[in-house]
């Protein structure tokens, strides 16, 4: 496991003439969950995909393990970074276990048979996410919550030190939202991973984010603890609506109410 920070250095990205990210810099430490907040279209998914080298920045660099990500082979990068997309093709009759097994491809390669170690890691990941008993179910029979847990299991099997989760709670009910986030939190703490989550729920951001990065007008306009970032002026700047922030009487975390 890597204990080196992830550094994003003056990153600029554009799809067309309009820049999506401009001179964006951010440094993330291991063992930390960073919640990426921002309005729709602010560039959250773009930033995550750029970190995973699926999109290529116009300028700037991203450093993982003190190496520019452009210097990694695809396989070496996949051993370090795992991106969990918002959506994925689910209409397949591959079983949960077979898909989680594919998480081992960055280690085993595309042609070699799976090793004992691969099987052990897959079993551990399935057990850690509570999916072991569902391992023989095919993907098209999973519920939304089970599917999210399966994706998490695959990322764990991949043994990446950097988890990029794009809206990991979208479409889940209250219980599964919290269960998934708690699971992610415990894994990140235990294995000293770096996790970036994009979530829309401000309450959850406050509960699970060690730090919050607020993305607005192509930049990270604020980066710090929930209490530092979830303030009325910053949220108004990022989301364009007036809000009031007060401390929640139950857990003391910032609570946001639009006015």
């Amino acid at each position: 496991m890597s204990t080196k920070p992830l550094r994003i250095d003056k990153l600029s990205f554009r799809y067309t003439d309009v820049p999506v990210l401009k001179d964006l810099s951010l440094t993330l430490e291991p063992g930390e969950i960073v919640v990426l907040l921002g309005a729709n279209g602010a560039g959250k998914t773009t930033l995550l995909r750029t970190i995973a080298r699926q999109l290529h920045p116009e300028s700037g660099a991203i450093w993982i393990d003190e190496t520019d990500i452009r210097d990694f082979t695809r396989r070496a990068l996949a051993q370090r970074v795992s991106l969990m997309p918002q959506f994925e093709q689910r209409e397949t009759s591959l079983t949960v276990q077979e898909v989680v097994m594919l998480g081992r491809a960055p280690h085993a390669g595309w042609y070699q048979p799976w090793t004992k170690l691969d099987e052990v890691r897959v079993r551990e990941s399935l057990e850690a996410t509570g999916m072991w008993s569902l391992r023989d179910r095919t993907l098209d029979t999973l519920s939304g919550g089970e599917w999210r847990r399966m994706i998490l299991a695959r990322s764990l099997a991949q043994e990446a030190s950097i988890l990029l989760l794009d809206e990991p709670t979208a479409g889940l009910d209250l219980r599964f939202q919290f269960e998934s986030l708690r699971k992610i939190q415990s894994v990140v703490r235990e294995r000293q991973l770096i996790a970036i989550l994009s979530i829309h729920d401000l309450q959850q951001s406050a509960m699970f984010g060690d730090k919050i990065a607020l993305l607005s007008s192509q930049q990270i306009i604020a980066f710090g603890s929930p209490a530092q970032v979830l303030t009325a002026p910053l949220l108004e700047q990022a989301f364009g609506i007036r809000v009031q922030v007060f401390a929640n009487p139950i857990n003391g975390l910032p609570t946001i109410v639009p006015v």
Binding site: A52, A78, L83, E88, L94, A105, Y111
Partner: peptide, 23 residues
Amino acid sequence: WMMARQLDAYSLGDIASQSLGLD
């Protein structure tokens, strides 16, 4: 047939398969 495992990964979608290191 040699590409079977890559095809399995590809069938999960572009983003997911790239994240698994697929070119």
